[in-house]
């Protein structure tokens, strides 16, 4: 995975970068499977490695497949990245160990979801019951985000030009 990241950093051909990003997503999906998060792996493989790649390729077809050389110095971004990375690594020191049963995430609402979820919703897949029932509001928000993205693309790239052309015809 780190190799693909360095590849993405070095290569200026955006087609290769998109392909490396897809490979990265696929490997991330494999890691999720190893961590027993099958639902997340499924999403990562279909959305990250599949649709995102297709849409990125569509964008490249619309624009250009060469990345421009940056016109400013690289020192300031480098400092920002190093500071942020250091802060993130410092943050991981407070994280619970992997698989620790006493971690806060496993002690708050998770036990009740796991115990009651299948009984209350009649749905064996806990992920689905949490996603759609316990966290219904969040999922509604996510769908609204996708809806907004679709509307945005239609507004920006939808063929308003044809409407303008038609108007010109009517004027003439």
């Amino acid at each position: 995975m780190s190799l693909t990241v360095f590849g993405i950093l070095r290569i200026r051909n955006l087609f290769a970068v998109v392909m490396l990003g897809s490979i990265f997503s696929l490997m991330a999906a494999a890691i999720f499977v190893i961590l027993d998060a099958v639902d997340v792996a499924f999403t990562e493989a279909s959305v990250g490695a599949g649709i995102s790649t297709v849409l990125a390729l569509g964008t490249i077809a619309l624009t250009t497949d060469r990345e421009k050389k940056p016109s400013h110095t690289k020192i300031l971004p480098l400092i920002v990245v190093i500071l942020t990375g250091a802060a993130l690594i410092y943050g991981t020191l407070d994280l619970a160990h992997y698989g620790d049963p006493n971690a806060p995430a496993h002690r708050h609402v998770a036990p009740s979801y796991l115990k009651e979820g299948p009984e209350k919703t009649g749905i064996p897949n806990v992920v689905t019951s949490v996603l759609a029932s316990y966290r219904g509001y969040d999922t509604l928000g996510e769908v609204t985000v996708i809806f907004t993205a679709g509307v945005g693309v239609i507004l920006l790239l939808g063929n308003w030009r044809h409407i303008g052309r038609r108007r010109e015809d009517e004027d003439a």
Partner: peptide
């Protein structure tokens, strides 16, 4: 089948 196995509306 998202109720019983991995999957759902998004996927």
């Amino acid at each position: 089948h998202g109720d019983f196995g991995p999957g759902g509306g998004f996927q």
